[in-house]
Design a protein around this nucleic acid. Structure first.
Lengths: 162, 162
DNA sequence: TGACTCCCTTCAAATTTTGAAGTCACTATT
DNA sequence: AATAGTGACTTCAAAATTTGAAGGGAGTCA
């Protein structure tokens, strides 16, 4: 069975992907971060079919990323909002945005589709990746990745049983 | 046609998703960032079928995210490596990792699957999101999103034609 | 010569997605 | 009181994609 298997890894990135790594789910998340809360609006803005939206929302809820909240009793109407777990996907969303702005082939100099203003300082903010230790901005080339023992064992096993 | 349509938006996040937002592609990217360069190894470590891997690699190459390089002339053998455009997906990968570590349901206190050491300072580094303007760390709740005119128009149109 | 490796391709079967249509429980309008 | 409308779905067949197994070709190694 496709993705259940992938979720069993110790690799945290793969585990994240197993939960939110599908395009529709990510588009729903974008909408959530834009403040959309209702079924109809998700459907219109993502262009996905309603049955898929329905199952995706259920999955997100089951995974604790969104919560349904009754906003009207009669008729019963729900809205969907991000939980804390969901809100923590913010850096992921910002990095999608940042890459898309740089490499997505949009017209240079066009007004940005989205602007993000930092409440505290009042300025438009971008996204900066900093070393948690020395504070310097860094990129892929400035770091070395090491695979830990558990993950290494898992990889070795895959290699053997192939 | 599914995703071609999504790629036409002015939303940079959706454009990113249209290029790399599928689970297999993301898993391939993980492998690339781990230093894997060969077809076989991608296949073994991701568990995907070879025909899919083949088409995904072609797509990534066509999109300029990876480049093939001949590493042996006879027999002709290629390796795949990230281009600059591909390397720029690093923050995205790190945010997948960070979220997975926090919310992926891995055992607390277990040795991390991956460790990332900053070459310059020699310390293990995490991931910090900082305001590009005032330098303070921030999260979803510390910022306000505003939809720009082009994107707003696009959204309005979708609402109408639904 | 025969076994093996790497990098794929082909193809049918299984699964998922799309797209359209329908449902249900109400509210608002005429 | 009948008609239309809204929000949130569900159902279902047709289309597209993915899986899984098998095969192939170009060369190396024993």
């Amino acid at each position: 069975m496709g993705w259940a298997k992938v979720a069993e890894t110790v690799c945290p990135s793969a585990r994240t992907l197993a939960v939110v790594g599908d395009r529709w789910t990510m588009l729903i998340l974008r909408e959530l971060f834009l403040g959309v809360k209702r079924f109809e609006e998700f459907q219109v803005q993502t262009g996905m079919s309603s049955n898929l939206l329905s199952t995706r929302l259920k999955r997100l809820e089951a995974d604790g990323i969104i919560a349904r909240r009754l906003y009207s009793k009669r008729p019963a109407r729900h809205e969907y909002r991000l939980t804390e777990k969901g809100l923590d996907l913010y850096p992921l969303m910002l990095s999608l945005k940042a890459w898309g702005e740089k490499w997505g082939g949009l017209k240079r100099g066009a007004a940005p589709a989205l602007s993000i203003v930092h409440k505290t300082c009042g300025h438009e903010t971008g996204f900066q990746l900093r070393c948690g230790s020395c504070d310097a901005p860094f990129g892929a080339k400035d770091a070395v990745v090491t695979i830990g023992p558990a993950f290494a064992a898992e990889r070795q096993k895959r290699r053997k049983s192939a």
